[in-house]
Simulated scan of single mutants.
Amino acid sequence: MAHIDYFFSTLSPYAYLAGKRLEELTRRHGAKITYKPFDIMSLFPRTGGAPVPQRHASRVEYRAQELPRQARKVGLTLNMKPKYWPVNAAPSSYAIIAAQNAGGGDVGALVHGLLRASWGEERDISDEGVIRASLTEAGFDPSLADSGLLVGAETYAANLEEAVAQGVFGSPFYVVDSGQKFWGQDRLDDLDLHLAGKL
């Protein structure tokens, strides 16, 4: 059974555009996922990247064209300039970590719910009320927003270090236990083929 370490940031529009496709393809192949939210703003300077405001104008212009194209392609609503972005990604990440540790709900639905809240619904994913509502919608106890703070902070920091060690440089990033790596939601078809033994 294949295992995928899924590295992502709750600030990433590309992670949002992945939708629930990772979960769908892993169900088809009987693969397992470990969700590893990390601090992408701390990752960028360590791996040669840069936050959007610091990128060359040509990259910013391309992003402005590419994101709406990809959103239309997968049928997702996307606000290119969310009211609450960027925000502190730590609280939403801690909630995901706590939920994954607790079990009992749908972690994939929680991840997508938080990303959708930011990029599709103009909600602040650093707000406790939004996090609690997202936990509830995904079948988790909303009190996980409070109870997982210490472990969440430790794991969040560890995920960043593991991301750097594994050669992760963006979000979403999928690392299979076969050693193969896939960067971007537009590589999910390749990941699907890899898990099928065709790539």
Rank of each mutant, 00 (worst) to 15 (best):
2 A>I: 10
4 I>S: 04
4 I>H: 02
5 D>R: 13
5 D>K: 13
5 D>Q: 14
6 Y>K: 03
8 F>Y: 15
11 L>M: 10
13 P>T: 14
15 A>K: 00
15 A>G: 03
16 Y>P: 10
18 A>S: 14
19 G>L: 01
21 R>Y: 10
23 E>C: 00
23 E>R: 00
23 E>S: 12
26 T>E: 02
28 R>I: 06
30 G>W: 00
30 G>M: 01
31 A>V: 11
31 A>C: 10
32 K>C: 04
37 P>L: 00
38 F>L: 15
43 L>Y: 07
45 P>A: 08
48 G>T: 04
48 G>S: 09
49 G>M: 08
49 G>W: 10
50 A>F: 07
54 Q>L: 15
55 R>L: 12
56 H>Q: 13
58 S>I: 12
59 R>P: 06
60 V>G: 02
63 R>S: 11
63 R>A: 11
65 Q>N: 12
66 E>P: 09
67 L>G: 02
69 R>S: 08
70 Q>C: 09
74 V>T: 00
75 G>N: 03
76 L>V: 02
79 N>G: 07
82 P>V: 03
83 K>W: 07
85 W>H: 15
88 N>Q: 13
89 A>R: 05
94 Y>E: 11
98 A>Q: 12
101 N>C: 09
101 N>R: 14
103 G>K: 08
106 D>P: 08
107 V>A: 06
108 G>P: 06
108 G>T: 12
109 A>T: 11
109 A>F: 04
110 L>W: 09
111 V>N: 11
113 G>K: 07
114 L>R: 00
116 R>I: 07
117 A>Q: 04
117 A>E: 05
118 S>I: 13
119 W>A: 08
121 E>T: 09
125 I>T: 13
127 D>R: 01
127 D>G: 03
128 E>P: 10
130 V>D: 12
130 V>T: 15
130 V>R: 08
130 V>H: 11
131 I>M: 08
132 R>G: 05
134 S>W: 09
135 L>A: 04
135 L>K: 03
136 T>A: 15
139 G>N: 02
139 G>H: 05
141 D>V: 07
143 S>H: 09
144 L>E: 08
145 A>M: 12
145 A>E: 06
152 G>W: 06
156 Y>W: 15
158 A>L: 13
160 L>R: 06
160 L>E: 05
161 E>L: 13
162 E>T: 15
165 A>K: 15
168 V>C: 10
172 P>I: 02
173 F>S: 01
174 Y>S: 00
175 V>E: 01
176 V>G: 09
179 G>M: 04
181 K>T: 11
183 W>G: 08
183 W>E: 00
183 W>P: 06
184 G>K: 05
186 D>S: 12
187 R>D: 03
188 L>M: 10
191 L>Q: 05
193 L>K: 14
194 H>P: 00
196 A>K: 13
197 G>R: 05
